[in-house]
Design a protein around this nucleic acid. Structure first.
Length: 264
DNA sequence: ATGGCTGGTAGAACCAGA
């Protein structure tokens, strides 16, 4: 199998981002593009303009208004699976098998609301419950797998612009980091982001819309991740952040992560 | 100065994101 270039990107509405999705595919030419927060129910998904970009194989798991994930691919996608790790029926996962036999799992973990306390903020508990169910699922995995997406947790000190100021901010609290570490340990997942851009190097994938100048203030967080099974980690050839996409017209608040694999 | 914005949907002095 030839090299495979895979992008992951939380695009904050697929219909609002068709122009910059086209731009990414022109500039980076991923073979596979995994999207999160498509914010569209399946019957209204914009298949036509995305197929026109060369992505003939598309699988989606969407719902009205919120969440939603999709995989756009130039190579065939087989054995589509939709998991739900949330209490409510949320469209936050879609997985497929790639032609080389690997699984590819595209996930959008809940943000978790504002207050990092399950008693005051049910969304925080739902996020932790989601991670627990994912961990149970992950513990039973036996196949070579790529798992990626918006995990909504920045685990390392160098994954955020200020470790001290974000310790009690949802996405960087110790309890979430511990839950993410348990998930990672359940399959010995290899964090490709930090294999290619080792800590303590700066590595962000998200910047708030509310900053006056996102690049000047640079208050970023690494919320998006690409993990792989240990057995296939040696196939990863490159991984980088398309940071300039945060400055494109009508940008998402997340930027794409690109990972290239050699064939097995 | 971590909400200062943004998108979807309703038709809001809305909700959600993180």
């Amino acid at each position: 199998m030839p090299a495979l270039k895979i992008a992951t990107w939380n695009i904050n509405s697929v219909r609002a981002r068709l122009d910059i999705v086209a731009r990414l595919t022109q500039e980076e030419a991923p073979d596979i593009l995994c999207l999160q927060e498509t914010k569209v129910e399946d019957g209204s998904f914009p298949f036509k303009p995305l197929r026109a970009l060369g992505y003939e194989h598309i699988v989606i798991h969407g719902q009205k208004m919120h969440h939603g994930v999709a995989i756009l691919s130039k190579v065939p996608l087989i054995e589509e699976v939709r998991q739900n790790w949330h209490d409510a029926p949320h469209a936050r996962h879609i997985g497929v098998r790639l032609p080389n036999g690997w699984r590819l799992e595209n996930v959008y973990i809940p943000a978790g609301g504002d207050i990092p306390d399950s008693a005051q903020n049910p969304k925080f508990g739902e996020k932790l419950d989601f991670l627990k169910r994912m961990t149970d699922w992950s513990s039973a995995l036996a196949e070579p797998t790529i798992i990626l997406g918006d995990f909504n947790i920045a685990p390392l000190e160098s994954d955020v612009w200020s470790h001290k100021q974000l310790l009690d901010v949802v996405s960087h609290t110790p309890i979430e980091v511990a839950a993410l570490e348990a998930l990672q340990a359940s399959h010995n997942w290899v964090d490709l982001g930090r294999r290619f851009i080792p800590a303590p190097q700066r590595y962000y994938s998200w910047w708030s819309y509310r900053a006056k100048d996102w690049a000047a203030s640079d208050r970023g967080r690494r919320l998006d991740h690409v993990w792989v099974s240990p057995s296939i980690a040696h196939h990863a050839r490159a991984h980088y952040v398309v940071e300039q996409a945060r400055g494109w017209d009508k940008a998402s608040d997340h930027v794409p992560l690109m990972t290239t694999f050699n064939g097995p």
